[in-house]
C-alpha cells in the first residue's frame, strides 16, 4: 500500500512538471529541453537550505522556485536573442553544463547526491500527508495554468506563437511574454523539485539527466500538447505502466532495462500512431498544440 501511495506522490510531482513544461513548450512554443535542470535547482536549493539552515520546508521550497526562476530568466535572455531553434541547443547546453557542475561540487554531494534531508512530517500519516500536499499543489498548478492560458494573457501567448512578427507589429513585446512564460514554467518545476527533495529525503544528479526532459516531453505529447488535461493524463500513464511490471519479480539486472524498453517503446508508438495525444476530440486547444509541434523553423515567408 505504502508503495502504491509513493507512486501516486511521484505521479503528482510529475503532473506538476509536465503541466509546467506544457505551458512553456505547448502554449509558449518555446523549444527547451532544460526542464529537468530547473527541477534540479528547486530540489537542490530546498534540500541544502533545509539541511544547513533548518528553514521551514515551505520556505525552502519557495526559495528553490525562486532560484529556478532567476536561472530561467538568465537562460531565456541570452538564448532568445538568437532567432530560430537556438533555444533548443542553448537549453541543452545549459542542462548538461549545470548538471555537470552539480556532479562536481562538494557541497552538492557530487555524483552521490544529498541524503539526510530533514524529515518534516513524521509518523504513519507521512505519505498520505505528502500525497495531499503534492496532489493539492498539482491541482493548483493545473488550475493556475488553465487560468493563464484561457484569459487575455493566454490569447497574447497564442498570438505570439502563431505569428510572432505580426504580434510584435501590434505593439507587443514578444520577448517579455516569452521570458515571463518561461520563468513561470521553470519556477513551477522548481517547486516540484522542492517537493521531491522533502518527500524522498534524497536527491542525486541521476534524477535530473537530460533524458528526463524526453520523459516529460513525452508525457506532454502523449496526453496532448497544448491542452490542459493532456499532461496530467500523460504523467499518469507513463509513470504507472512501467511501474506495473515491478510486480513481476524480475531480477534487477533485467528489470531496469525492461522498464526502460517499455517506456521508450510507449513513447515511440505514441509519437507515430497518435501524435496529437490522448486528450479530447480535435478541439481548438489541440489544434493549437499541433501547430506548436508542427511549425517548422521557417521564418517569415514572402
Amino acid at each position: 500500500m505504502e508503495y502504491i501511495l509513493t507512486i501516486v506522490v511521484l505521479i503528482a510531482i510529475f503532473v506538476i512538471l509536465s503541466s509546467s513544461y506544457n505551458l512553456v513548450i505547448g502554449y509558449g512554443g518555446l523549444a527547451t529541453v532544460a526542464h529537468p535542470i530547473f527541477y534540479a535547482l528547486g530540489a537542490y536549493t530546498s534540500a541544502l537550505l533545509g539541511i544547513h539552515f533548518g528553514l521551514p520546508a515551505a520556505i525552502c521550497v519557495l526559495a528553490g522556485a525562486l532560484v529556478a526562476v532567476v536561472a530561467s530568466i538568465l537562460l531565456a535572455l541570452s538564448a532568445l536573442r538568437v532567432a530560430g531553434d537556438y533555444l533548443l541547443i542553448a537549453s541543452l547546453g545549459f542542462q548538461l553544463g549545470l548538471l555537470q557542475v552539480i556532479k562536481n561540487f562538494e557541497f552538492t554531494g557530487g555524483p552521490g547526491g544529498i541524503s539526510a534531508i530533514p524529515n518534516t512530517i513524521t509518523g504513519p500519516w507521512r505519505t498520505p500527508a505528502y500525497l495531499l500536499i503534492c496532489g493539492g499543489i498539482a491541482a493548483l498548478t493545473v488550475w493556475l495554468i488553465a487560468r493563464i492560458v484561457h484569459g487575455p494573457y493566454g490569447r497574447a501567448i497564442t498570438a505570439m506563437r502563431d505569428e510572432e512578427l505580426a504580434f510584435s507589429a501590434l505593439g507587443r513585446n514578444a520577448m517579455t511574454i516569452k521570458v515571463v512564460v518561461f520563468a513561470i514554467g521553470c519556477g513551477i518545476a522548481g517547486i516540484a523539485g522542492g517537493l521531491y527533495a522533502f518527500y524522498f529525503q534524497y536527491v542525486s544528479p541521476d534524477q535530473f539527466e537530460v533524458l528526463h526532459s524526453a520523459a516529460m516531453l513525452t508525457m506532454v505529447v502523449l496526453g496532448g500538447m497544448g491542452t490542459t488535461m493532456g499532461p496530467v493524463v500523460g504523467a499518469v500513464v507513463l509513470i504507472a505502466i512501467p511501474q506495473a511490471i515491478t510486480f513481476l519479480n524480475l531480477p534487477p539486472a533485467v528489470m531496469a532495462p525492461m522498464q526502460g524498453i517499455i517506456f521508450t517503446t510507449l513513447v515511440m508508438l505514441f509519437l507515430f500512431l497518435r501524435p496529437a495525444g490522448l486528450v479530447g476530440p480535435l478541439s481548438r486547444d489541440r489544434m493549437a498544440g499541433r501547430t506548436a509541434l508542427e511549425k517548422s523553423s521557417g521564418g517569415v515567408a514572402e
Binding site: A159, D162, E163, F167, V300
Partner: peptide, 14 residues
C-alpha cells in the same frame, strides 16, 4: 499573417 489558431474576434481583441 493572421493568428491562425484563433477566432476572428480573438484576432481583433489581441
Amino acid at each position: 499573417m493572421l493568428f491562425t489558431t484563433m477566432t476572428v474576434m480573438e484576432n481583433l481583441l489581441i
